[in-house]
Design a protein around this nucleic acid. Structure first.
Lengths: 227, 227
DNA sequence: GGTCTTATTATGCGAGCGCATAATAACGCC
DNA sequence: GGCGTTATTATGCGCTCGCATAATAAGACC
């Protein structure tokens, strides 16, 4: 019973555009979470939001624009809450990184349903310049956050922090993908431990290619282009 | 002009079921490569194979079965060719692993179009028990291959090889995902170097949680359940 | 309280989808 | 060379899709 229960009541609410846009974005994420790719549908999303189809084309230039905004909303939400969680910890760089890891492998973070949302967005990246731009931005932010965290390590000045962020980011993503596809393949604590160990190895200089000015570095590591 | 050029020639070829099945599997992969999720369509796949729709339901129990077989075919092909490439190298464990890495980050391996195939398959995993089984099997094989390669390291008896395979597999996958989404974010050589460095750190015992019997190991690393 | 803006709904159109069912013809077999 | 098996095609049905267009009404403003 969506319409107002009062018989003569208004048949719909007229909301501020920005509010309605947020509702539609939330409905989009809910829809992708429920139905995966089949959730990419004007009809489904509008039904999820409890409004009629036309509202989507009214508030957005099209479904693509709505998807891009949903992508950005989800990515930014996760990024900020994770980094806040990490930086809220004390000044100990290892502890901060550890917090970042634990926050990245919580049960909610490795929810297979949430992973399916990402799969949808990723699959749209090659087609849409907008989606690509969102991904570049969010990936860049994730790497920047890791760089900041890694820069706090005792011997950070002797480390190629940008390259290290690439590696650590990949390690985390790989663990996250695997856990999302099969939460039973290994424990979240294992994932956190693997990340902690990697940081430890980095800090101790055991990841040779990630040390600055290493003669072997210039040969083995190609130049990193703009993220 | 698909039908035979001779006017009175046969209108279609009657092929051995197994051959036709292979053709349909190949057409499925080609279709997913071209169209992503929109390629999951009886009409599109059959058109790609140059046959009529009905053949799919005739040779397979349904589109789901065809997709599962295509998934397995692609995964097994990549797995075998990569591991053959690695084991073909000499007995030096580092060299073998290095070969495995380089083979995993060739331009063909990080083709965004191929990545889209995987996205489709991954998105089907939560729904289909068959797809899940295929994924379990292929992921297990990938880990087993890495375990074999890591077991060749000098101090392998002092290492938790199964746990190490999880970490290395995740690192590789994470790098592969990122490169597939944006081949320009960093160089393939960087990815290989990061993997090599990780192996080096592992072999030198710098990844503390991956050493056997370490007192900290039991605390930090939870037990690994069946892959 | 009338009026105007515009957020919102309702409806129709054409196309593509999966699936089922019937018709057809290639090719092995004797 | 006719015959039977079955691989293969052709066709139709009901559904949902995205998109466009017209009709409606909520709520602000004076």
């Amino acid at each position: 019973m969506k319409p107002s229960s009062a018989v003569g009541g208004p048949k719909f609410r007229r909301e501020a555009p920005e509010l309605r846009r947020d509702e539609l974005i939330a409905a989009t994420l809910a829809c992708l979470k429920k139905h995966g790719h089949d959730g990419v549908s004007v009809r489904r999303i509008s039904a999820e939001a409890g409004v009629s189809m036309g509202l989507i084309t009214h508030h957005f230039s099209g479904i693509d624009a709505l998807l891009a905004e949903a992508y950005e909303a989800l990515a930014m939400r996760l990024l900020t809450q994770n980094s806040e969680h990490a930086f809220a910890a004390g000044a100990d760089p290892y502890e901060r990184l550890h917090r970042y890891f634990t926050g990245s492998f919580t049960p909610e973070a490795i929810d297979p349903a949430v992973f399916r949302i990402w799969l949808v967005f990723w699959s749209l990246v090659p087609h849409s310049k907008t989606m690509r731009a969102v991904r570049e931005r969010t990936y860049g932010r994730a790497r920047a956050t890791l760089e900041r965290l890694l820069a706090g390590l005792p011997n950070a000045q002797g480390l190629r922090v940008e390259a290290a962020a690439i590696g650590l980011s990949a390690l985390m993503d790989g663990l996250w993908v695997e856990l999302s596809l099969n939460p039973r393949s290994f424990d979240a604590a294992t994932a956190v431990a693997l990340c902690d160990d990697w940081v430890q190895a980095l800090a101790s200089g055991s990841l040779r290619g990630l040390r600055v000015q290493s003669p072997v570095t210039a040969r083995r590591h190609a130049r990193i282009v703009a993220p």
